[in-house]
Design a protein around this nucleic acid. Structure first.
Lengths: 109, 109
DNA sequence: ATGTATGCATAGATTATCTATGGATAGAAA
DNA sequence: TTTCTATCCATAGATAATCTATGCATACAT
């Protein structure tokens, strides 16, 4: 079994927080949003997504409420908290710094 | 104890292969090169580096020989193999595709 | 009635990384 | 000559993140 890696490890929290920036979404919607926005390149497996959402809940970056979807289904909608919005800023800047650093290595070496 | 993460997980092999692109290096030299090229942003711990080198050896991406350094020390010098050079190309392009995809999500969301 | 897409979630395995060590030697400093 | 610092190897154990594989439930279309 080859190791595929649908995702660059360490980026999932950032991706999730980003999709919640504009509006609350349920888990399935988050996964679809990431897939769609990335032009099908990034796929978030459910076994990665839900544990990640638990982590985010525990740390208070998001909160969750049961609501009805447009298709008349019960679903947990996740919303960015104020702390989560702040955290998003932190993680985004850390990520960009990392990427820039990696870029320098890849380019100069 | 806060989790720091000196590195973006999943990028170490690519970084190592890249530093070996021009010339063979020993482990310590690889770590220094990555640190220096990244302007001190990226730090490769020895506990990450040596296991990674073992993986690369096992897969045949690099080969190793004991030699003397300029400072008169014995050290294992790692060299990219032909397969390793090819692998570097693959990983580089996968990485760039990932980063581009992540960029789209971060931007459009 | 049956299938398909939607939606939740967990268990277990795997992998990668970090922390914390430990050992050895060259050369400088004291 | 002793001691310190930098250079070099490497492993063990813990931790964390992700994937694979499931399982359950319901709305709606066929």
């Amino acid at each position: 079994m080859a190791k595929k890696n649908d995702l660059l490890p360490g980026t999932l929290d950032l991706l999730i927080l980003t999709t919640l920036k504009r509006a609350p979404l349920h888990g399935y919607g988050i996964a679809l949003a990431i897939k769609r926005l990335s032009d099908e390149v990034l796929t978030v497996e459910e076994g990665s997504l839900y544990p990640a959402l638990q982590r985010l809940l525990l740390q208070g970056w998001v909160k969750a409420e049961w609501k009805m979807t447009e298709t008349n289904r019960r679903a947990r909608f996740y919303t960015l908290t104020a702390a989560g919005r702040k955290q998003l800023g932190v993680e985004l800047s850390e990520f960009q710094q990392m990427i820039a650093a990696i870029g320098r290595v890849l380019q100069d070496a």
